[in-house]
Computed example of a mutant assay.
Amino acid sequence: MTPERRSDPPAPQGLRIGHVHLRVADLDRAIGFYRDVIGLDVVQHYGDGAAFLSAGGYHHHIGLNTWESKGGTPPPRGHTGLYHTAFVYPTRADLAQAVRRVLAAGIAFDGAADHGVSEALYLHDPDWNGVELYWDKPREDWPLDSRGRLQMVNAPLDMDGLLEN
């Protein structure tokens, strides 16, 4: 399928990604990251091999399991797989709070960008799964090209300005 083609009928307007389920090497370590750094709540343990976490009382936004990966290692670079899971925060102040939790945990960011439509920061979880933390700017502030089409960019993020929130 080429990028220009669209399925017929198209996906409904309300389609969303419900959750991501990750294989991890150490369940407790992964729970600690997603609970203490990202800020999710543990909703349920599924035996000693899996856990489900969420925000706002949802049944789960992320699943973690060691069913086929206990003690495993991250895939080597150059292989296919999940690039990152993106967590969208409702406000810039909420994103700033998440950034402060990451910094307090001593975790380094791999990158940060102002994409015009959003402000985003990138890091890795303990199993080297990519994680993006971002907030969407108001739609009326999104940059458009001369033909009125969305024009995403990759500009430096004003980290000091973000952390003032």
Rank of each mutant, 00 (worst) to 15 (best):
T2C: 10
R5V: 09
R6P: 12
R6S: 14
D8R: 12
P9L: 14
P10R: 13
A11F: 15
L15M: 15
R16D: 13
I17M: 15
G18E: 08
H19P: 08
V20T: 05
V20G: 03
A25C: 04
L27W: 03
L27Y: 02
D28G: 03
I31Y: 06
F33Q: 11
F33Y: 13
R35V: 12
R35T: 09
R35W: 11
V37K: 01
I38D: 08
G39Y: 12
L40C: 00
V43H: 03
V43Y: 04
Y46V: 12
G47C: 01
D48A: 04
G49P: 05
A51R: 03
A51Q: 01
F52W: 02
F52N: 01
F52T: 00
S54Q: 00
S54G: 00
G56V: 01
Y58G: 12
H61T: 04
N65G: 01
T66D: 10
T66A: 10
S69H: 10
K70M: 11
T73I: 10
T73Q: 13
P74H: 01
R77M: 08
R77F: 11
H79K: 09
T80E: 08
G81Q: 03
L82Y: 00
Y83N: 08
Y83K: 07
A86E: 10
A86P: 05
F87L: 05
V88N: 08
Y89I: 00
P90I: 00
P90T: 00
D94M: 00
A96S: 02
Q97G: 05
Q97P: 03
Q97H: 11
A98Q: 12
A98Y: 13
V99C: 02
R100K: 10
V102Y: 13
L103Q: 02
A104F: 03
A104W: 06
G106S: 02
G106E: 04
G106D: 03
D110A: 11
G111R: 06
A112T: 06
A112V: 06
A112E: 13
H115Q: 12
H115A: 07
G116L: 05
V117L: 14
S118I: 01
E119S: 08
A120G: 10
H124E: 13
H124Y: 13
H124A: 13
D125K: 08
P126L: 12
N129G: 07
N129F: 07
N129T: 09
G130S: 07
G130C: 06
E132P: 07
E132A: 09
L133V: 05
L133I: 09
W135H: 07
D136L: 07
D136C: 04
K137D: 01
K137H: 01
K137V: 01
R139Y: 15
E140F: 02
E140D: 14
E140A: 05
W142K: 04
W142H: 07
L144H: 15
L144G: 12
D145W: 15
D145G: 07
D145I: 07
R149N: 15
L150E: 15
L150G: 11
Q151W: 14
M152E: 14
V153T: 14
V153D: 09
A155Q: 14
L157G: 08
D158M: 14
L162T: 04
L163N: 06
N165I: 04
